[in-house]
């Protein structure tokens, strides 16, 4: 047995025990089990915080490799690394409530994120104009539902005629909610199945196994 196999075995044992403890504790009233589960969950929270650090190291590794190898567009990778290091230094030295950190957040990160996000509005408009067409019966239904939803999301139209709000609320509460519930149930069953596969060591892509 190689050391990698042994590490994976230990990891799976930990996963199995922790999974069983937290699952059983959710259903069974037991102060002892509750205390153990509380400790387990606070450990998991600490480990999750460390994973942010691991993510940063990964970024350093991947982008650093590009810079060293002078890969395609390596200057973009260099800018990313410089920005990341600068933000980390400022955050650690002055804490995240420091004016410099706040400046980086509100004058660099926030505007650039919002600028790319705002493309969505234009793309939605061009996609809607292009695809909401009465070519088929389903297309007609999509068109009517789309227009009614746009009207519902314009509060002024509710003032013009109260019926728009009633129709819009019905569309959201009945057909929309029915579809969402169905997808939610399927999604929950899928999460249960994935969790079982991980606990029973049947999921090859977890814990680096293939």
């Amino acid at each position: 047995m190689t050391s990698i196999d042994l590490r994976r075995d230990i990891a799976y044992v930990i996963v199995f025990i922790m999974g069983i403890i937290t699952t059983v504790e959710y259903f069974v009233v037991s102060p002892g089990l509750r205390s153990i589960s509380a400790d387990v969950q606070s450990w998991a929270t600490i480990v999750a915080a460390f994973s942010l650090g691991v993510g940063s190291i990964n970024l350093l590794r991947i982008h650093g490799r590009q810079v060293v190898k002078r890969g395609q567009g390596y200057y973009n990778n260099a800018v990313l690394l410089a920005g990341m290091c600068m933000t980390i230094v400022v955050g650690l030295w002055g804490t995240t409530s420091h004016p410099t950190y706040q400046f980086i957040f509100f004058n660099i990160l926030y505007p650039s994120d919002t600028a790319v996000w705002s493309l969505l509005g234009f793309y939605i408009a061009s996609a809607a104009v292009r695809t909401l067409r009465i070519r088929t019966k389903e297309g007609a239904v999509l068109l009517v539902a789309g227009i009614l939803t746009l009207i519902k999301n314009s509060p002024t139209m509710g003032v013009v005629w109260g019926g728009f709000s009633v129709i819009g609320d019905w569309l959201l509460s009945v057909p929309n909610s029915a579809a969402v519930r169905g997808i939610m149930i399927c999604s929950a069953i899928g999460v249960l199945a994935l969790g079982l596969r991980v606990l029973l060591r049947q999921e090859r892509t977890s814990l680096g196994g293939r």
Partner: peptide, 23 residues
């Protein structure tokens, strides 16, 4: 069993038995 979670436990047990059995 914690109050309000008996039904959820039942669903979980049935689900686990089904999926594990088929696996």
């Amino acid at each position: 069993i914690a109050s309000g979670r008996i039904a959820a436990l039942g669903i979980l047990v049935v689900g686990v038995m089904l999926i594990v059995g088929v696996l």
